[in-house]
Simulated scan of single mutants.
Amino acid sequence: MSKERITAGEARTIMILFIMGSTMIMGAGGQAHTDAWLAILMATGMSVPIVLISARLLALYPGQNLYDICLQVFGKLAGRVCILLYVWYAIHLAALVLRNYGEFMESEAMPETPMLVPMLFVAALCIFVVLHGIETLGRSARLMFNVCMITIIVVLSLTLERMDFENILPVLDYGWGPIWKGAFSAFSFPFAETFLLTAIFGGVKDGKSYVRILLYGLLIGSGLVLFITFRNLFILGNYTMSNVYFPSYAAVGRVNVGDFIQRIEGTVAIVFVICVFTKISACLLAASYGIAKLFGLHSYRTVVIQTGLLVTYLAYSLYDNIMEMLHFASEVYFFYAFPFQVIIPILLLIGAEIKVRRGNRANAG
């Protein structure tokens, strides 16, 4: 694992696609209605400290990932408990994203196909990439990010005539309550989830630029999410956005250029699949690293297939229907993910700072 390296640009691209993930099709901050854009801006600001914590931890322990840092800071027993918690979170997050993809395929793209079939294909592709290591994932992300940007720009040019810029008004129509609720929701999904990338970013070639890598990745990713939110709001309006499961798919479905260019929802599906593939692969890689560290395995590749199948089974059995999925994402997930995204990172940072300063004093003495 220590021999695998990615460039700063590849790490940044993985982070951007990780943030986009299933957010590109499900949206973020929907509880804020027409002020979802304001909720996303607030969530981005709230996420900056989490990103800086990740960068600081990686800078304090060069060449080491989240699991190594847990053992260094908390010791063997508590460190292994911390590793186990993050392995579970990585597996669960991968299952949540895979289920988002499965629900989308069943309800919109291929309603007559069993949900498990497209989920298995995506899981198999993620397993294949993770088996080849983070270097392959990084190069794939750079290539696929270009495809995503070209697709987004083309779709934007085709949807301009369908936009009504007054749909954003009135600002603060529902008050600050829904905005704060949407901001906390967007903070936990997807922005603060990026702390999990600390588990796979220990092997960045330019380790001195962690702040620049992670902060730029956050800003670019949140900017793209904000752009998609504006586009959906301008095309659909608040009422329609609040009554569809996948607003991006519905918005692009409105495109009709001269009765010739229409029904281009497949372009959204392309971007969605790319982002979901990258996010699940990153989570699967993080989970495999953690399992290998926990059990002292020589290579994480020995557990990738088993972990990928576990993710698929968990994703298939998580919910009974799409309403349960949306309820968990909007009402429960913030409280569930808060310890993984905020509490443990802060404790890790405090412990790491104390350990490093004591070590420096001892060396100076």
Rank of each mutant, 00 (worst) to 15 (best):
residue 305 I to C: 14
residue 148 C to Y: 08
residue 243 N to M: 12
residue 285 L to S: 10
residue 151 T to A: 11
residue 238 N to S: 14
residue 133 G to I: 06
residue 61 Y to Q: 10
residue 71 L to I: 12
residue 17 L to T: 10
residue 268 V to F: 00
residue 189 F to P: 03
residue 255 V to Y: 02
residue 77 L to V: 15
residue 335 F to Y: 15
residue 123 A to D: 05
residue 227 F to Q: 01
residue 240 T to G: 03
residue 198 T to S: 13
residue 297 L to Y: 04
residue 82 C to N: 07
residue 282 A to N: 04
residue 250 A to K: 11
residue 293 K to D: 12
residue 187 F to C: 02
residue 85 L to M: 12
residue 237 G to A: 06
residue 198 T to V: 14
residue 260 F to V: 15
residue 326 L to T: 14
residue 64 Q to R: 13
residue 278 T to I: 15
residue 91 I to L: 14
residue 16 I to P: 00
residue 195 F to L: 08
residue 161 E to V: 08
residue 72 Q to V: 14
residue 80 R to D: 06
residue 250 A to C: 06
residue 353 E to D: 03
residue 36 A to W: 05
residue 319 Y to I: 02
residue 187 F to P: 02
residue 228 I to G: 01
residue 3 K to I: 11
residue 230 F to S: 07
residue 213 I to E: 03
residue 103 E to K: 01
residue 184 F to W: 09
residue 304 V to S: 08
residue 352 A to W: 04
residue 255 V to H: 01
residue 80 R to C: 10
residue 299 S to G: 00
residue 106 E to D: 09
residue 78 A to P: 10
residue 22 S to Y: 00
residue 318 L to M: 14
residue 118 P to T: 04
residue 229 T to D: 08
residue 212 R to V: 02
residue 60 L to P: 09
residue 59 A to Y: 07
residue 313 Y to K: 07
residue 100 N to Y: 05
residue 18 F to G: 09
residue 94 A to G: 15
residue 189 F to V: 08
residue 323 M to E: 11
residue 180 W to F: 14
residue 57 L to Q: 01
residue 292 A to K: 04
residue 275 C to I: 14
residue 312 T to K: 00
residue 150 I to Q: 00
residue 236 L to M: 11
residue 22 S to G: 04
residue 41 L to E: 04
residue 341 Q to H: 13
residue 306 Q to D: 07
residue 307 T to W: 00
residue 45 G to P: 05
residue 83 I to Y: 00
residue 281 S to E: 10
residue 134 I to W: 04
residue 4 E to Y: 02
residue 48 V to Y: 03
residue 352 A to T: 10
residue 58 L to I: 07
residue 122 V to C: 09
residue 154 V to E: 01
residue 355 K to R: 14
residue 312 T to F: 09
residue 270 I to Q: 01
residue 267 T to I: 12
residue 15 M to S: 06
residue 258 G to T: 11
residue 187 F to Y: 11
residue 59 A to N: 10
residue 24 M to Y: 06
residue 198 T to L: 13
residue 340 F to E: 05
residue 21 G to E: 01
residue 81 V to C: 12
residue 123 A to P: 10
residue 289 Y to L: 07
residue 255 V to I: 15
residue 118 P to W: 02
